[in-house]
């Protein structure tokens, strides 16, 4: 893409213009200050101090509980947790959930909800399984998550939900033989894929808080990760060759095809396509390795596999570079 006046300004180009004497030293200085002025430094430092400070305070609270746990009465435990939870909520109310402080306090309240459930289960020995705790936790905080308009809290909520599902599979489904590994990957793939689609829909509808790039990348990575792991498991281990788990490669191929269409033609994003390519290379190389090393596992096979790795990755890199050039020309 040729640089134009309506393109994003950067330090390097401004400095290059000064070096070629197209603009003066003072113009260069003033331009650099606009791009990296005191306000941006202040904003960055303020955010770092707030996030780090909040994380350290939270860690201090957790360590305090860990130390005093055995000696505390149940009443004291519940009082401390509920007071902290209430303080976070009141603080979020006064700070306002439009501000970062308010959002972080709501995040703190969500974390304390989980702590409360864990302590409740421990004190009253309810016999509840951990997966029930995580599902209950995700259900209880969904209201705050919905109103927070905070990407980090949504990610926490998804992490809790995913953990609940995985624990359910480990503690209930496996002993009852009701859900195999492939099916687990399908379920997690669908849930996280839905989260990704909702994020894209929301950001297209003007929800600015969803437009953070890291959220798009994180959701995309996770959505594709589970079907990829499931597909690799099917390739490697014949014990996964049964319905419905054997369908996970179908889901995986569908996701790859969708991601190719979406990130090449709808919302051009080369880094997302590169992630796709990485997943495809992983599966392709696993398949190639499975075929080769079933024939033999001598030195020649390792040499051949090394060349296959080079060819597969080389083709992938060539395709990405070609796509990169075409995207630049088109924009």
């Amino acid at each position: 893409m040729a640089r134009k006046l309506d393109g994003p300004a950067d330090r390097k180009t401004i400095q290059a213009l000064y070096k070629e004497r197209i603009i003066s030293y003072w113009a260069c200085k003033a331009a650099l200050s606009m791009l990296q002025g005191p306000r941006l430094w202040l904003r960055w430092i303020n955010r770092m101090l707030l996030i780090l400070g909040a994380a350290l305070c939270l860690a201090g609270v957790v360590f305090f509980f860990a130390f005093n746990w055995a000696a505390m009465s149940a009443f004291l435990k519940f009082t401390l947790i509920e007071v902290s939870l209430a303080a976070c909520l009141i603080g979020a109310w006064f700070a306002g959930i439009d501000r970062l402080v308010g959002k972080l306090l709501l995040l703190g309240a969500s974390v304390f909800t989980g702590v409360f459930l864990a302590v409740y289960g421990q004190v009253y020995q309810t016999g509840a399984d951990p997966w029930e705790l995580f599902f209950g936790w995700s259900l209880l905080i969904i209201g705050w998550v919905a109103i927070s308009r905070f990407a980090a809290l949504w990610v926490l909520w998804l992490a809790i939900l995913n953990t609940g599902i995985i624990l359910y599979w480990a503690q209930v489904a496996i002993p009852n033989d009701s859900l195999d590994f492939g099916s687990l990957c399908i379920v997690l793939g669908i849930i996280n894929g839905a989260a990704f689609i909702l994020r894209e829909w929301g950001s297209g509808r003007g929800m600015k808080w969803l437009r953070v790039k890291w959220l798009q990348h994180l959701l995309f990575v996770v959505a594709l990760a589970f079907p990829t792991i499931g597909t690799i498991a099917v390739v490697v281990d014949e014990s996964h060759y049964h319905f419905p788990g054997v369908l996970v490669p179908v889901l995986w191929m569908f996701y790859i095809a969708f991601a190719y269409w979406f990130f090449k033609f709808k919302k051009a994003n080369l880094s997302a396509l590169a992630l796709c390519v990485l997943y495809v290379c992983s599966v392709a190389l696993t398949l190639a390795g499975r075929i080769l090393f079933e024939i033999s596992d001598d030195a020649l096979m390792f040499l051949i596999f090394g060349f296959i790795v080079l060819v597969v990755v080389g083709v992938a890199a060539w395709w990405l570079l070609d796509t990169h050039r075409k995207m630049r020309k088109a924009s």
């Binding site: 303020n46 305070c57 860690a59 201090g60 360590f63 130390f67």
Partner: peptide, 25 residues
Amino acid sequence: MDLLTKSGILFASGAFLIIIRIIIS
């Protein structure tokens, strides 16, 4: 150190950073 002292140090460190933030602003 024991967990109690560590928890105090962690909390104090966090509170210190937040106070610095308020002062700077």
